[in-house]
Design a protein around this nucleic acid. Structure first.
Lengths: 330, 330
DNA sequence: GGGTCCAATGAAAGCGATTGCATGGATTCT
DNA sequence: AGAATCCATGCAATCGCTTTCATTGGACCC
């Protein structure tokens, strides 16, 4: 048996297809008894409206796209969940696309998504600005963790939290810090480095910049190696994954954390809590990030002309066990 | 400017819409010059076919659904990527849905997906069999990491690898083992426990069954606690996440791994490599799992009547650093 | 030269929903 | 009572594409 349509329901109920359609979309326009009959018949037949047909006439796909650079990076599942949860509440499922860290794939996917979705959320896009604008075309887009003047965006602003982190270490007696920079193409990496530099400038401390390193466990191990070559007693890693690599490297070399060095991550992904010692980090407001992104996208879909809004949500400093008093040098 | 359609292209090229459609779908049916003209005009106008219109007439959405119980569990991102990669190659994007560990949500989502997608891949579904069958209806479904007689499925069979793991520990001198069981509702957990039991029965060893524990880091800590209350020198954890919890708990209590106890995980997720010590585990064939699932689904979409095929792919024992010689009991 | 066949194209009928407009019966107003 | 109003419903067009069937104009064969 083929799927039920508004026509089969109409026939059964002895009404026209238009009435059936209205029973679902504008229930106030059909008489209560007829509506009841229709709904019950629909349930009986296990009717599901064809989204293709609806999409064709309304011009809306009822879908939003989500492009992430790397779903295996533990940052993204948390974001994906937050976005999906919000999108689901407003009845617009999410099409997830993994760009596998390729900028080229990213804009290719945006293009592909056009015509299938009503708008897309681009999480931490790697693509150059021009490519993004071009690929987007008239497709509503919102960026997460990156800004671009022409597009709405929501970013996590870690400035204040990183200051808190710095102060935390300062109070523990640290005076020499290493900044383990993330990938140079990453907008977030640039912002974080900047925030830390600014904090360091306002304090009487030494800041040794190392990197850039890849935002991966391996990258972290390399960063750990570099860290040991310096006299820094505390390190800011670009993100938690890198911080875990640092921890592993230090452990492998018999350097105690936080005994001999303190390490700070960023994002607060699952890993940060499971690693030993538990990672002092800056928690990203995943839920808010996701919710805001979806809300902004919806707004942009409904009012395509609106000026792109830029939102920044603060991260929160979360002390755990990977930071401790500075070992007195010597 | 509204989007280009086959009509606008047809007009520009001085041909009929039918020809334009054919130029894309049955290129061998239109003359080379006309096709070239059409394709160039299409590129010019940045034409994207409306998937709604196409879907309406062909009855195919050109989309497959993927339902995972918990995207934040590191097992799933790896699977998602593998599935997406394959689906992408055959030009069928993936709609990802996170059921947030709720069986009810799971079947609700399956229902919702019907009419939007051509088929669904259900990864490690929690729902009772009846609910799944019912929700599926005539929608092609394939299960990953769970079997059900009526549905095609692909599972990771860890039996052999777990035997290897057992032998590995046996050779290291272990004679008393703990089995840290996963959630009782999990099909995979049942299979793993069974495999280990069978192995133990074939050997002169003691097997202490503990649990069930939640398949989470916290669950693992609890399992670690329970483990310490026994005399077992080696433990099989349900999965890597749980194993990490065990490791953390042992570390917190000053018990050395692998010095005093050996721990084995399962799945080989990112965590297994980043934790200290690196986890000895059983690697799941994520890429094959994903590829097979998509291929089976496609086959089932194209031949709805076919008998459900059941595939099992072997995991591979992967020794790392969390296992070592049994401490001679004192 | 006339018939056959084929390749290239066009005309038109849907696919299943939404929606503006028309309609007709009941209700209310004057 | 007749006119005006309104509510519930039906009719029919439409969205953009695919696909069947018909048509045209050569090329080819006898």
């Amino acid at each position: 048996m083929s799927r039920a349509t508004i026509y089969s329901i109409a026939e059964i109920c002895g009404v026209s297809a238009a009435t059936v359609s209205r029973a679902f979309n504008r229930p106030e326009l059909v008489s209560p008894e007829v509506r009841a009959r229709i709904l019950s018949a629909a349930r009986e037949l296990d009717y599901q409206p064809s989204s293709a047909a609806r999409g064709l006439v309304t011009g809306r796909a009822g879908l939003i796209g989500l492009i992430v650079p790397d779903i295996t990076n533990p940052f993204f599942p948390l974001l994906v969940r937050a976005i999906q949860r919000t999108a689901d509440r407003i009845g617009s499922p999410v099409m997830l696309v993994d760009a596998e860290e390729s900028a080229a794939a990213e804009s290719r996917m945006v293009k592909q998504l056009r015509g299938r979705v009503d708008g897309v959320i681009l999480a931490s896009p790697r693509s150059p600005a021009a490519a993004l604008r071009e690929a987007g075309g008239d497709l509503p887009c919102v960026l997460v963790n990156r800004t671009l003047r022409e597009l709405p965006s929501v970013v996590c602003d870690n400035t204040a939290a990183l200051y808190d982190a710095g102060e935390h270490l300062y109070k523990l007696g640290h005076r020499s810090f290493a900044l383990l920079a993330g990938p140079s193409a990453s907008w977030a990496a640039a912002r974080r480095s900047q925030a830390i530099r600014r904090w360091a400038r306002g304090r009487e401390v030494e800041l040794i910049e190392l990197g850039p390193f890849r935002a991966s466990f391996k990258g972290g191990r390399r960063a750990g190696e570099a860290l040991l070559a310096t006299g820094a007693t505390a390190a800011f890693a670009f993100d938690d994954l890198m911080a875990c690599g640092v921890l592993a490297e230090l452990h492998a070399r018999g350097v105690a954390v936080p005994g001999e060095r303190s390490v700070i991550g960023c994002d607060d992904v699952l890993l940060a809590q499971t690693v030993t010692p538990a990672l002092t980090t800056v928690s990203a407001p995943f839920a808010d990030l996701g919710r805001t992104a979806v809300e902004m996208l919806i707004r942009h879909i409904e009012a395509p002309g609106a000026t792109p809004e830029q939102r920044r949500l603060p991260g929160a400093f979360t002390p755990r066990s990977s930071t401790g008093p500075a070992r007195t040098r010597g």
